[in-house]
Structures are given as C-alpha cells and as structure tokens.
Design a protein around this nucleic acid. Structure first.
Lengths: 377, 377
DNA sequence: TTACTCATTGAATCACTAG
DNA sequence: TCTAGTGATTCAATGAGTA
C-alpha cells in the first residue's frame, strides 16, 4: 500500500469499526465472542500460566482423593489449564481471518500444553521462535540451568492456509542479507520502558519488550493490519502497533492495566510512513509474459537464446515459445526439459547475445516493467 | 566418586548386570519392561519427530532435499503419536531411579505433545534447553523463519524428587564462570563424525552431535552413572558415555543400526578420569544484525546515514532496511547500489552524525557485540 | 604446498495465479 | 473447486578437483 493510501485509510474514520484501536474490558472469551468473525489479521497472545483456580472446580467423578495418589491435584490443575487454553484459542480462531496467523508466547510451565492444544484445534505451526534474553534472571539456587529464554509459537489458522503474510525479504535484509533465524536475541524489558505504578513498583509482572513485538509485527503484518491481543496487560502490543502504523484491539479484565495502557498508547507518536515502507521481493513484482517482449519489439522472433555456459541454444518463435530441436514450449518448460529438471526459471536461465557477451533475458523483463510503470499499468 | 572407586567398580564385573553397556534389540516398550525398575540414573531419548511432509522439496538449484521419510517416523494421527509417547514414557519412568532425570529432544512438530504428556505423567520439568545450530538447513522457499534450533526437555521423575544430579559448578566453570544458560550453541553432526554406510550415504538420518550429548552428561550425571537411550540409533549416547566414563544401555529395533553402533562404541577410548572435569563446549563468534541496533535503541528509525564523504545520504527504516530515493534494502545492498558495485560492506561504508562529525556504524556494532558476548551468543 | 573454485548436503510439516 | 502454468527460492561446512 502506498503512503498516500495509508493516510486516506486512517482519515476515513467511518470505515473503521468502533472496536478498532480500543481496549475491550472483560473476560477474554466473552469479549472475543463479541467481535465479528474473520476480522483480525494477526493475534499476539501472552496467556497467564499461574492461573488461580476457582473453588468451584471439581473432579469429573467427584471421587475422594486417594492420599497416596499425589498426581491427582496436578492432573486436575493441568486439566483446568487445558480447558482454559482450549476455550480462548477456539474463540480467537473464530475471530482470525482465514489467512491470519497467531503468535503465542510462554515458558516451559505452559508452552507445551498450549502448543499441543493449538495442534489439536487445527492451527498449523509455522515456526517455534526462541526469545533469547541478553539479561535473564539468574538461577539463585544453582539447581538448574539459568532459564534464559521464552518460546513463541507462530501458526496459521489451518494447514492449507498458505497466503499468510511473511515479510521474508525485509527480515533477510535486516539480518545482514541472510535469512532470519528462529532464535532472536533481545534484552528483557527494564529501565524507562518498564511501566511503574504509583509506588514505583513494576506495574505488570511480565511486560514484554517493545523490540520483541516490533519484530513480530514487522515480520508478519503489513501497515494498516489489525492485531488482536487477548491478554493486553500493560499494552505493549497496542503501543508498538500504533508506532508501526498498525491497528490494534486489546482485551483486558483489570481496570488498572486498562488505564495504564490507555495512557501509554496515547503518548505514542506514529512513525513517519516513509520509515515504515518495507522492501518486497520479486514475488510482489507485476507479471510479464515473455511474448509481450516480442510484442514490444525488444525481442525478435528467430533470436537464439543460450544458457549461461552455452550448453544449450534455443530459438525464439513468434508466439513466445522456445524451441530446442524437438522440444518446444515456454521459456520455463524448455529450460527444465533440456536440463532434465521438473522446474526452471526461464527468465534467469536463458541469455541473449549482446556486445559479444551473454545477458539474462530477465534484464529485458526489468525494462518492460519500467515501461509498465510509466504507462500506469 | 573418586577415580579409585571408579576403577574398583569397573574391575568388579560380577557387580554389573548383564544388560549394562549393551544394546537391547527390540521394541522400545517391550525392552524397557525387561529392565529392573529404578535401575538407571538418566534417560536420554530422541524419539521419532512425527514429521508430516507433503510432497518433495527442492533447493533453488533444483536438487532434491533428502528428507526423513523413514517408516518409523510415520504416525496416523496426533492421537496415535500421543499413545506411542505415553507408552514409552510410562515404561521409561518405571526404570528411572527416584532421583533420576530424563532428557527428551524434539522439534516443534512433536515437542509440545511430548512435553504435555510428560507433565501429565508426573514428570517435573526442570528446564527446557534450546540447541541452537550454527549451521542449520535454510528455508528454501522463503516462507518461514529458518528453523535453526531444536528443543530438549529436562525433567525429574516427580515434583518432590530434589536429589537429582546437576553439576552446577562444572557447568559454570565451562561457561567462563557465569551460569550455564538454557540456550546452547553447537554445529550439527557432519564431516568425520557422521557415520556413513557402505555407499557413502549417511547411515542414520538424525545422528546427534557428540558435543550435545557430552554437555548433557557432564551436566546431569556422575562418572559411573547409567544412561539409558531408548531410541539408540547410531549410538551417540553410548559412544559419549563410554568416552566420559559413564555406563549406557541402548534399545534399538534395527540390526543395521545396532551393528554400526557396536563398532562405533568399540573404537572409543575412555578419557582419563582426571581429564573428565575440564571439558567445555565450543563457542562461536557473535554476528550482529543491523536491525538489532534498532532493537537495542542505539539506532533510531528515521536517522540519516552518510558515506564518509557525504556523497550519499540514506534513511534508516523501522525494519532495519535503508532507503536512498527509490533504492531500498540492507545496509550492504544499498551501499553497493549507490556506488554501482556488486558488493559493499555496509558496516564500514555508512556513518552517522556524532558531535558534528561522522562515525562509522561499525562502532555501534562493536558495542552491541560486547552485550552479545555476555549472553553467550 | 597453497589457494581457489565448484559440487554436495543437513529432522523441512517450504507458491500462487489465471482460467 | 480444480487444473495447468508460471517462476521464486539457500547457509554453513565439507570435500573433491584444479591452478
């Protein structure tokens, strides 16, 4: 989307639902049920794992606990946590667009149960991403390894949903031109970023760093997308969304957190849209048919094309197909056939003679695209 | 245990059960049921990952990826995999000493199900440990993050078992005198360490590096302890156990793997006991991504960067890319493009304004590296 | 012997559009 | 919804071969 279109969209308030860029107060599942289905692009969830179990929770068969069987209580609390997890994930799934994705963050206390439940409900895991902390809390007793990371699960709505957003080229460019890995290094949230209450104590026990949320959104959303956070807490998701030109919806039960998050988000200045622009790879470029090069006169029928090492020579025909001996077809099919491969990118495989050397025909496609832009195509 | 005591114990063959330092052939659960209860100190398990591949995958050069499609990795459903997991974990738990611990390694395909089942059965998770690979396989289609790690769960037999072995001081000493973290960096198993069959092909599709097993054993076992591996495969657990003066028991179904593992272990020379305390893992040079400077707040989106002679000015964007007019990309690509070169080291080419003069952004990288080294990057 | 190029490979749940 | 066609996509190591 161009910067101008983005501005238009922001200005057209009437087109936005009332819940956009607000915090819904109340229970997570009840609030999710009030949102329209298939209405958000990405969900970021940081669910609690130290649930205070309600007193009205009973064993399925009401039986007396055998004092020897000390697994019962454990099982009971796991079962309650699983039920809670299942309920909010189901409600969240209804709200997610078919090509939307969900991020859930957790530690070893809960992430395995959450991940298994996500799989059971049909979510399709794309990656598990490790947040490595530069400055984790030490292990004071010296009885375990220092717990220096948390785990995020990134999943699409279901297995066949392939159209999710992943800004591959931007992630790669940001990572010194090699693919972004599944292990990310960030400091924990401290200092000025950490919200404090009136006593100077930390407001929220698990406030996430904005850099973590920024990476999540830059990787899996576009400007103008809607990001839902069903456990909004101190509002990091909302603050980062606003800064990065995205829309948010928060759900939170406690008024104290809602007040703090509202003030926090109000003080955020959105970034200039030219700083939000992102690179996109060839996939986003308009398609060019090989035959249109012939139509435009930049490629003449009868021209001979070669692979980079002149192992094969092909003749361009008037209808935009190539011929090598008995083999004929598109630039891609013929390129694949002569090499004995299933597939081949003809644009980069075939070359034409220019100034005594060989030039990829992809160069001609680039020129054709410039012409298309001038024509406003 | 002193070295002398260890020698005594090795000499007293009659005190050792017949199954010690052998590979039991057969089904995992059936073989476990034949072992006496509470007889092993540590279990290391590398169960099938239940990969669900859909068709072939080719590299950009059209070569086919040799994926794990072995029959032992095929399960009909999540329910079938869960039943399998539950069965072997239950059988393993009976064999484990009350103060014993268990390690299970997996990927996002299976580890969440395994972890939840472990909790259901009463195992008490001590840590989840991330194995970060220095040289993971890339994501060839550019549709996800590079899957650059696997996860290990380390758990005690139950919550109240506090007497498990954890060699805290040895781990700390091996890690430059700071606590060993839950994220470990090792290369995958290649080169001379990788077992080959008679055709020169990899013998086992998922052979683990010895360095990984060595750290597991140095952390959670003492010399003379018994380590059980119920999915023995190529026998890495046995080879490392012998080298480190520990005893092993393996369980494996396929005779081919048993033969190869037996020969492999026979060729291992045990380390001198006085050397056992001084081993540590390899460490790698930290690499800094430009975007991490933004994450850390030392570089702000919207900042203008210049080359040393201010011939070009570029704007830093939120996702870690640079923009000069229509040109956008990584610090390296943009530096190359404005100069008309094929390549450019953006770290030394671009500068930022400081105290009225220009400073290389490489200076910021040096600062970031100091922080990363502390995090064991 | 050294330096360089080129081919190979590893636990992988790896497209998208037009008709 | 299905089919056919286009065409996008890789990092770190090892090891063989060559200059």
């Amino acid at each position: 989307m161009s910067a101008a279109a983005l501005l238009d969209r922001s200005a057209d308030v009437s087109a936005q639902p009332a819940w956009l860029n607000t915090i819904l107060k109340g229970d997570c599942v009840a609030s999710l049920d009030k949102l329209p289905e298939k209405s958000v692009d990405v969900i970021f969830a940081d669910p609690p794992y130290n649930l205070q179990l309600d007193g009205d929770l009973h064993r399925p068969d009401q039986s007396k606990v055998d004092a020897v069987d000390d697994h019962w209580d454990q099982f009971e609390s796991f079962a309650a946590y699983d039920a809670f997890t299942r309920a909010w994930l189901l409600a969240a799934r209804r709200v997610l667009k078919p090509n939307g994705t969900i991020w859930v963050i957790g530690s070893y206390h809960n992430i395995f149960r959450v991940g298994a439940t996500m799989q059971d409900l049909g979510f399709w895991i794309l990656n598990d991403v490790v947040w490595r902390k530069t400055n984790p809390m030490p292990n004071f007793r010296g009885r375990r390894f220092q717990n220096a990371h948390e785990t995020m699960i990134w999943a699409s709505r279901d297995q066949k949903a392939k159209g999710y957003t992943f800004n591959y080229e931007a992630m790669k460019a940001a990572n010194d031109d090699v693919q972004m890995r599944s292990d990310w290094l960030f400091p924990i949230c401290t200092g000025g970023e950490r919200l404090k209450d009136e006593n100077g104590e930390k407001l929220h026990p698990t406030q996430k760093p904005e850099a973590l949320l920024a990476r999540v959104m830059l990787a899996s959303t576009k400007p103008g997308d809607v990001i839902l956070d069903p456990f909004f807490g101190s509002g990091t998701t909302g603050a980062v969304a606003k800064r990065l030109g995205r829309n948010f919806v928060g759900i939170e039960r406690e008024q104290g957190y809602i007040d703090a998050a509202t003030a926090r988000i109000a003080s955020v200045t959105p970034m200039a849209s030219e700083d939000l622009a992102t690179i996109s790879g060839k996939r986003a470029e308009p398609r060019v048919a090989f035959v249109s090069l012939i139509d435009a006169g930049v490629m003449k029928p009868g021209t001979t094309l070669y692979d980079s090492r002149r192992r094969w020579a092909a003749r361009v025909r008037a209808d935009g197909t190539l011929a090598v001996g008995d083999i004929a077809g598109s630039i891609h099919r013929v390129g694949a056939q002569v090499q004995g491969f299933d597939a081949c990118n003809g644009w980069t495989f075939w070359h034409y003679e220019r100034n005594g050397g060989l030039t990829q025909i992809d160069e001609l496609r680039r020129i054709a695209r410039l012409g298309m832009e001038r024509a406003g195509a």
